[in-house]
């Protein structure tokens, strides 16, 4: 297992968290990124099953699931009184809580952590709302660099039917607070194309692995598995 210790070297984007001993993190951090309604949760389930079948312990985590901020954030978002800086920082708090209280302990315990999005999505949404990318990069300097970021890449034409026949258009996912369009549909198209544009820029900047998300779910799943294989440690069974 000599190769493992080499692969396991984590680092932070910025100055990081001083109490975390990076050498003690023996797990893997794999992030699934992509816009709203692109089908991330389906793939998360499939990946989890697959990794477990290989004998790896899996921990999954998603945006706004932190115990600390869940209630406060839900409340704030339902009232539409959330200012933009406040929103940026509330989400950063949530992300930090999940990183420190869920992701890092799981990595320490040798888990494969599958993260349904990471700070990239939060930043993309903030930037679309006018935040300074440089400021955000500073704020998220405490974040761990994942082993791999898989980016489900698509365009807004492809998202529309998925959103419509899925959960429908919601206020925040349609960027209604930006008053970008006449109605939910127009606004959704304008807002999501801007978010996608930002994610595409980040894909280059942070070296995401792009996966074509316009394909059938089974094809996407195969592409994801192929992408992950090189960073897998020895499982109980061969893949």
């Amino acid at each position: 297992m000599e190769g493992d210790s080499l692969l396991a070297k984590f680092r932070f984007y910025g100055e990081g968290l001083k109490d975390v001993n990076l050498d003690s993190l023996s797990g893997r951090l794999i992030v699934l990124e992509g816009p709203d309604s692109v089908g991330r949760s389906t793939q998360m389930c499939l990946l989890r099953e697959w990794l477990e079948s290989l004998g790896h312990a899996v921990s999954d985590t998603g945006l706004t699931r932190s115990e600390l901020t869940q209630e406060g954030l839900d409340q704030a978002k339902s009232g539409h009184t959330l200012g933009r800086k406040t929103m940026s920082l509330f989400y950063a708090t949530d992300f930090a809580d999940r990183l420190e209280n869920q992701i890092i302990p799981a990595l320490r315990a040798g888990y494969y952590v599958l993260s349904d999005r990471y700070f990239y999505s939060i930043c993309a949404r903030d930037i679309v709302r006018g935040a300074d990318p440089q400021w955000l990069e500073g704020v998220y300097g405490f974040a761990l660099v994942p082993d791999m970021v898989l980016y489900l890449k698509t365009d807004v034409e492809d998202l529309v039917p998925r959103a419509l026949y899925g959960k429908g258009f919601n206020y925040w996912e349609s960027g209604m607070d930006l008053a970008a369009g006449e109605d939910f549909f127009d606004s959704f198209c304008v807002y999501q194309s801007r978010v996608i544009k930002e994610l595409n820029l980040m894909s280059e900047r942070y070296g995401f692995v792009n996966i074509n998300a316009s394909n059938e779910p089974s094809v996407i799943f195969n592409d994801l598995k192929e992408a992950i294989k090189p960073i897998l440690t020895n499982g109980v069974v061969d893949y």
Partner: peptide, 29 residues
């Protein structure tokens, strides 16, 4: 908007230096 979250974090003692800092910055924002 933020008070409840800060209170919860302090009561349960789950705030780290990073989240302590961020939640107060959220309040300030």
């Amino acid at each position: 908007l933020v008070k409840g979250t800060t209170k919860l974090g302090k009561k349960r003692k789950v705030l780290t230096p990073t989240t302590f800092s961020l939640i107060h910055a959220t309040d300030f924002a």
